[in-house]
Amino acid sequence: DHDVVPEDKFQETLHLKEKEGCPQAFHALLSWLLTQDSTAILDFWRVLFKDYNLERYGRLQPILDSFPKDVDLSQPRKGRKPPAVPKALVPPPRLPTKRKASEEARAAAPAALTPRGTASPGSQLKAKPPKKPESSAEQQRLPLGNGIQTMSASVQRAVAMSSGDVPGARGAVEGILIQQVFESGGSKKCIQVGGEFYTPSKFEDSGSGKNKARSSSGPKPLVRAKGAQGAAPGGGEARLGQQGSVPAPLALPSDPQLHQKNEDECAVCRDGGELICCDGCPRAFHLACLSPPLREIPSGTWRCSSCLQATVQEVQPRAEEPRPQEPPVETPLPPGLRSAGEEVRGPPGEPLAGMDTTLVYKHLPAPPSAAPLPGLDSSALHPLLCVGPEGQQNLAPGARCGVCGDGTDVLRCTHCAAAFHWRCHFPAGTSRPGTGLRCRSCSGDVTPAPVEGVLAPSPARLAPGPAKDDTASHEPALHRDDLESLLSEHTFDGILQWAIQSMARPAAPFPS
């Protein structure tokens, strides 16, 4: 592969990997390779389809078979030569091979799209000592099968071997295949498990690692696999990028399955594409389908809103127990993405979901129960707010008499603000006073009005108090039968009158 990737590009890729991570280095090298001529790309395919690569990765054979028959990708048995050289000459001794072996032994695996480039050397060096003999053996194999790289107009793939297949390693990572398949204008990513390549439709969760975000852009890794992070704060999961590491605690105790298979379609829109997988259930989501939507993949363990709600429900009964003089119970939860139609709101002032922060849900004790107040519409209280300059209440639009249902020339009671006709409430011909108009209920007259088809109010509507207090003497005590009587009149003013009279009014101040 030294004929494909020059030394300066190799060093530039290593520097970019240390600065921005393996995914960015892979993407940059792939983009550079696509700008080369067809001879360089053909050399790339020839390096990929060597015999030892085909033996190690069985899924490469179907890719090789898909090439046109007129494309010669065979390799000479006596060494490598550029395709432009007409004579089959043995190339001179390859010093770059020693360079590659020494550099890969030092860096474990470079971040390139060629056999030198995919593992994360920093994480491997940190986690190597417990498994040094086995990992050293794996390093000797890295130059042979560490990076199976493929690129063409139909298929483009980048393979990364790992030393996680050490025997006896619980939940060992089998390997990473960062794979971009450009077929019919689409893009897919796969993962390699035990020599087999699994596409998103049959993606397997190998051991402790999972394909957290099938994305090839942005600074985030394709698999949430930063070796420096180790395990999740809650004892979460091992990262795919942690090559040759000792077994780590796999999943939280509440995880239903340690080796679950995540779905390959969004649980909201039932469509495929780039998904984020939940650590607590097999569901996966688009970032845009979450509520609120996320802009980037959160670091650490992530769970959907259903799993978060289940966790909150487990903690909430203990938080609601009476604990005198104790601060509110704080339950730190990872930043969760909410699927459509589901929402768990945190306290005000918290950062938005999706940031690399930890939301704190506070379970406050329930407030003391209070008697429910009568629910009145805002339009129902409008007549009470229509007060004239002299303190006389004006008529609201649409006000109707509670007896006849007519809204023409209605009066407004100064005591309960109900609309009424003087002739309907006082049919006996009582003279109307000039000021202080009161309806039949507030004036103490319980004589029913002779209106055909309208039920008369119940005599129990009024329960006047002592006459010594004029204001308190007109406080009506309405009961269920009074409400039914008012409802039978089918008037809004009657219902409003009952609601206003049912509310307690402050006692009249004593004259000074």
Rank of each mutant, 00 (worst) to 15 (best):
Q242P: 13
Q243H: 13
S245F: 10
P247D: 06
A251R: 12
D255A: 13
Q257S: 09
H259L: 05
Q260H: 12
E263A: 06
E265V: 08
A267G: 07
V268S: 10
R270W: 10
G272C: 11
E274C: 06
C281T: 12
R283L: 07
S291N: 11
S291G: 10
P292M: 12
P293R: 12
P293L: 11
L294N: 14
P298G: 11
S299K: 05
G300P: 05
R303A: 10
S306Y: 11
C307K: 15
L308Y: 09
Q309N: 09
P317H: 15
P317I: 12
E320L: 12
R323S: 09
R323M: 12
Q325A: 09
E326V: 11
L333T: 12
G336F: 15
L337F: 07
S339R: 12
S339F: 10
E342P: 13
E342D: 10
V344P: 13
R345L: 08
P348I: 06
E350Q: 06
P351R: 12
P351V: 08
L352V: 09
A353Y: 15
M355P: 12
D356G: 09
T357R: 10
K362C: 04
H363V: 13
P368R: 12
S369I: 07
G375P: 09
D377C: 12
D377V: 10
S378M: 14
A380D: 06
P383A: 07
P383F: 04
G388Y: 00
P389E: 07
N394Y: 15
N394S: 11
L395M: 14
G398Y: 05
C401Y: 02
V403D: 08
D406R: 05
G407L: 10
V410R: 02
L411D: 15
L411K: 08
L411A: 06
R412V: 07
T414A: 10
H415R: 06
H415V: 04
A419R: 08
F420Y: 03
H421I: 01
C424M: 01
P427E: 12
G429L: 07
G429V: 10
T430D: 15
T435W: 14
C439K: 02
C439A: 01
S443H: 05
G444D: 06
P448E: 04
A449D: 14
A449S: 14
E452D: 10
E452T: 10
V454P: 10
V454M: 05
P457E: 09
S458N: 09
P466F: 11
A467K: 07
K468T: 10
P476E: 12
P476R: 07
L478M: 06
H479V: 14
R480W: 06
D481M: 05
D481P: 01
D482I: 02
D482V: 02
E484A: 01
G494K: 02
I495A: 01
L496M: 00
A499T: 13
A504S: 11
R505W: 15
P509Y: 13
